[in-house]
Design a protein around this nucleic acid. Structure first.
Lengths: 246, 246
DNA sequence: GCAAAAGTGTTGTCCTTACACCCATGC
DNA sequence: GCATGGGTGTAAGGACAACACTTTTGC
């Protein structure tokens, strides 16, 4: 079988003149994007979900997704879903993985490209009426439609890894935040406890936090200072990380 | 525009009974996989390419790819390409990124899922007649068809990162290798020079290298010891890496 | 003045880096 | 015996982990 194929290819294959015709012969699959929209609230990492509108998944929760349109870039499709669902642009968005399992959609094969996006919950007023759109605890939410639990897990793993290597977490916080909020965020995402003093030392030594001179309000204890992350300074001083470590 | 949509959705939408019909309405795109097959030879990181068989890309180099068939899992499609082109199974293979640019294929929109695979060049006897299949230097190869230069760059970045976190490099080496070969591999992939003594210390302290008792042959200097990587021991002692570092 | 969390420094350990000399083999 | 690369040890510096007390505010 294999040798027959080799023989065929070994003969001088003529070049294909008509790329269009070639592509028209290809099998086609429906393609969607799904956005795993992470948020942070009440010291918990949350994910934004709606009720599935498929009968077979009645009562199950679903990621925000849509078909990729003809003549639409993948990233653009994901940004469109975000815009339509949250009204937000300028959101951190990253392609994470593509899921193509044959049985993942009850209506036949549908391949989906999963994007993770991080947004500040405070900037987004939910319109609850739309399919019960609301925030769920990432680690505990069950009863998911499709393979969406697997997609969330993959994106959550990606997030855990990424916030240790890049300053992504700030996209989940208000523009001005206390160090306690920042630490709560890392503890929630990594699901570990961190030493407060060492955590502060670590972030101050990076030297990307700007003291705003402002303080927390409405807390019933000594208010903490509020900081901003200096993205500009970070971009300029990005260092290449070299360190074999496994 | 948006508010009109919101109104529509706000009304109690009935659940969709027929998932099949829904999916049949979706637009379809041709889907392919492309394999970025890395190898290591003459202390250079190589990538396996063929001549494109499209007239518009006459003389250009192309990744090994193929259409994803109906009823074929994405990973299976990538393994099939590997098997057909190199005769090898049991190869390291990983989905890296999906490319969906509207202009990436001259025959119309084609979305491709890029996989990186690592294989030991010595295990693979090239059949040169097939579209001039052969190895190219990763960093210097030009004249690529489609967006394949970009795909290679993305996979190369992925590889640089991954070999520092996981013991992937061993998939590019013979089963038994000297420490010099291992170091050459890391230097070639990371494009840096490493201190020989510290490199040895690092790997010995990990304690995953097994001394085979054998030595290099056919070298015109003192022969080095040959080692094997203990994948079993590594799997057992995988540690979770926690360390904020950006 | 009491509760609650903010803010701060030191010490020991480990990891990384930089660096120089002897050893085994082929020719 | 000489050229080539294999093999080893040590010391200094930097990062990280562990740990306790004082300060500020609300009540």
């Amino acid at each position: 079988m294999k040798s027959a194929k080799n023989q065929a290819v070994a003969e001088k294959t003529p070049l294909l003149k008509d790329a269009d015709k070639l592509v028209q012969q290809y099998p086609c699959v429906p393609l969607t994007v799904d956005c795993v929209i992470f948020g942070f609230e009440e010291n918990k990492l949350k994910v934004l979900l709606i009720r599935s509108d498929l009968e077979v998944y009645k009562g199950k929760w679903s990621l925000l997704g849509d078909v990729v349109r003809d003549n639409e870039e993948l990233d653009d499709a994901a940004y469109r879903v975000l815009q339509e669902r949250t009204g937000m642009s300028n959101v951190y968005l990253k392609q994470v993985h593509t899921f193509g399992g044959l049985q993942r959609h009850p209506g036949g094969r549908v391949v989906t490209v999963a994007y993770a996006s991080l947004l500040n919950i405070k900037h987004h007023e939910l319109r609850i009426t739309e399919n019960e759109l609301h925030w769920h605890n990432v680690r505990t939410v069950r009863d998911m439609a499709f393979d969406h639990r697997e997609i969330i897990d993959t994106c959550y793993n990606w997030l855990q890894k990424s916030i240790q290597e890049h300053p992504l977490g700030f996209n989940l916080l208000p523009e001005k935040f206390s160090l306690r909020e920042l630490q709560n965020l890392y503890e929630a995402i990594l699901n570990i406890e961190l030493d407060r003093r060492n955590f502060r030392k670590k972030f101050f030594s990076m030297d990307f936090l700007v003291d705003t001179g402002e303080y927390e309000a409405d807390v019933k204890h000594r208010p903490g200072k509020l900081y901003q992350f200096d993205f500009g300074k970070y971009e300029k001083s990005k260092r290449k990380w070299i360190g074999i470590d496994f």
